[in-house]
């Protein structure tokens, strides 16, 4: 469904912009329906850049990203809207992804309005309260601002908000790194349940092998912007071939 073809993203740095840094270097992969792909790597390896490229928040320097065979670079306005509805992202820092000057009532209703999911205000209300209930979120959150709720609740809202769109693919960019261990378990459990129930494809970006192993079936190990190894969870974990992967796995197995 989503395919990266030799995607490279480079930045100019240095005083005169003469130095080229490759954040993502010739990465190719594809995810199919109902797949669970994990992108594993240390911080700074370029895995979050891949997530942002897929969301078209960044443009690739080279290569193409295709959705159902169509390059996202050449999409028309309506195609892009459709793409955004179907490919969604969960960010790392739930307490900073919401507009600090907007109450949750408006934040939550955004996707419903942008994609005309409801034909009347009553229907909008119904859709939202159904989802709030499904996610165990009290309606009193409507009148709160993002800085007034806990990270766990904020991440729940983030997941709920994109789930209202019924996306085909969810990219989760370190969704539990900023959360407490106990809350992390809740969010992962929730995410898993949601994926299974709605047959959503997941691209899970994380530095945490335990978490990736719990969430994914296939893993790509990334180092310095390059895919150094990929394979099933068991292969990577029990029979790592690449030296870096072995180092990573060993250091986490202790």
């Amino acid at each position: 469904m989503l395919e990266f073809k030799n995607v490279t993203k480079q930045y100019r740095s240095g005083m005169f912009g003469t130095h080229l840094t490759k954040a993502v270097d010739d990465v190719s992969f594809c995810v199919g329906e109902n797949e669970r792909l994990g992108l594993l790597g240390e911080s700074g390896c370029g895995k979050s850049t891949i997530a942002q490229l897929a969301m078209k928040l960044l443009k690739p320097s080279k290569g193409s990203i295709e959705y159902n065979g169509k390059n996202i670079k050449h999409m028309s306005r309506s195609e892009m809207k459709n793409y955004r509805k179907n490919v969604q992202i969960i960010f790392q820092n739930p307490q900073q992804v919401f507009n600090p000057r907007m109450k949750f009532r408006e934040t939550i209703s955004e996707p419903v309005r942008i994609y005309n999911l409801a034909s009347s205000p009553e229907e909008e209300k119904k859709i939202i309260s159904e989802h709030m209930e499904m996610f165990g979120l009290p309606e009193e959150l409507f009148d709160r601002y993002p800085q007034e709720i806990s990270g766990g609740q904020a991440q729940r809202i983030a997941i709920m908000r994109i789930l209202m769109l019924k996306p085909e693919i969810i990219i989760a960019d370190e969704p539990t790194t900023m959360l407490d261990v106990s809350v992390q378990a809740q969010i992962l459990e929730l995410l898993k349940e949601v994926m299974d129930k709605n047959n959503i494809t997941l691209i899970f970006v994380s530095h945490d092998l335990d978490v990736v192993r719990a969430m994914c079936k296939r893993i790509m190990v990334i180092k310095d912007g390059q895919v150094v190894e990929q394979g099933s969870v068991d292969d990577i974990f029990d029979r790592p071939e690449n030296e870096y992967t072995r180092m990573l796995v060993d250091s986490l197995k202790e």
């Binding site: 942002q52 509805k85 969604q88 900073q96 600090p100 907007m102 955004e110 942008i114």
Partner: peptide, 26 residues
């Protein structure tokens, strides 16, 4: 450069809405 701006773009907000509901109030 904040983290909520890419999030607002990802969810599909129009440029006009981003200016009036995200940038201006902040």
């Amino acid at each position: 450069n904040s983290e909520y701006l890419p999030a607002s773009r990802a969810i599909g907000n129009s440029k006009l809405r981003i200016v009036f509901r995200y940038i201006l109030p902040n």
